[in-house]
């Protein structure tokens, strides 16, 4: 019996809203789309339009969503930064949503305010995907992170996973932690003491997943199966002197990686600054470029599932 599509017409705001089974449904669809002959694939979303509303610029996420839509024969329209939209003229988020949803079948939105995506989804009658809102969540990033781990490791259960860098402001960290809590994993949070995760994480996840906090990467590294590195995001610091204090706290390089397991994989949501040295790129540990490719495949599967085309 074919499984019911849990993504049909659904908003994708928080990864918490989806079960482990929902995620596996999506991963299977992603595998299927990747193997599909081109002539079938490019007809999947023929005639469908994705609206992208990027109130906060993000070239990488926008390109990935656009590529995902085009790859299935769909089209896109939208704005890549608020400067070119009526938002700059003071239009409310609610009015922008009510306008754009008349022209599109599905919306992806990115916004700098916390909770903007939940609010926009309440307004919109078309399905809305959170492409990152404030410091809060970036659910499709977490989905593609989990998908990459499964593809590389065969499974997520029983892995030791380290999250390194900006754990306080990095929204990908929050989504990934909520995503990982659906699996049987051990999570090690490695950061400068002032960049520890917010207390909501412990409130929500303490009983669901084994989490510990550390500040020394070298001590933890030999244990890890996956190292997830994040950039320290200057733009999110309310106090820039705080940023100056922590900006180069960690650097992953070939020397430090000598302590790692041979099959450790390194992921990064990108863009990076200096937290991973370029020399690591050609090592077998580096999976972050594959991760980007997986992003497009997974987002294609998500769009096709939300729009409920048969495949």
């Amino acid at each position: 019996m074919a499984k019911l599509n849990p993504f049909k017409n659904k908003d994708v705001i928080l990864i918490k809203d989806f079960t482990r089974d929902d995620l596996f449904y999506l991963f299977q669809k992603a595998d299927k789309i990747e193997r599909m002959p081109e002539r079938d694939r490019i007809c999947l979303l023929n005639g469908k339009i994705l609206g992208y509303l990027f109130f906060e610029p993000s070239t990488r996420t926008r390109l990935s969503f656009e590529a995902a839509m085009l790859w299935l024969g769909g089209r896109t329209l939208g704005f890549a930064e608020p400067k070119v939209s009526s938002v700059e003229k003071g239009e409310s988020l609610a009015d922008t949503i009510r306008t754009v949803e008349n022209y599109v079948d599905v919306i992806v939105m990115r916004h700098s305010k916390d909770g903007a995506a939940s609010f926009a989804a309440e307004i919109a009658s078309k399905p809305l995907i959170n492409g990152g809102s404030g410091t809060e969540e970036h659910p499709t990033q977490a989905m593609l992170d989990l998908y990459t781990i499964i593809k590389e490791k065969g499974s997520i259960d029983n892995l030791k996973i380290g999250l390194l860098g900006d754990l306080k402001y990095g929204r990908t960290v929050y989504s990934l932690l909520y995503g990982l809590s659906k699996f049987n994993v051990e999570v090690k949070l490695i950061s400068h003491p002032i960049l520890r995760v917010r207390r909501e994480i412990f409130f929500d996840l303490e009983k669901k997943v084994k989490i510990s906090e550390h500040d020394n990467l070298e001590e933890i590294l030999p244990d890890l199966d996956v190292l997830y590195v994040t950039r320290i995001q200057k733009e999110r610091f309310p106090d820039l002197s705080e940023y100056e204090r922590v900006k180069s706290s960690y650097n992953v390089n070939l020397k430090i990686l000598q302590k790692a397991k041979d099959d450790l994989i390194i992921l990064h949501p990108f863009p990076r600054i200096d937290e991973i040295s370029p020399e690591v790129d050609s090592s077998p540990h580096a999976k972050y470029f594959k991760q980007m490719l997986n992003g497009r495949i997974l987002r294609s599967a998500l769009l096709a599932s939300i729009l409920d085309v048969p495949f």
């Binding site: 409310s92 988020l93 609610a94 700098s112 916390d114 909770g115």
Partner: peptide, 20 residues
């Protein structure tokens, strides 16, 4: 109290707090 919360910039919006 979160200055970056959308409820503090979208004027017509009612705040909502759950009691967990």
């Amino acid at each position: 109290p979160n200055p970056n919360c959308i409820t503090n910039s979208e004027e017509t919006m009612a705040t909502k707090f759950y009691v967990p």
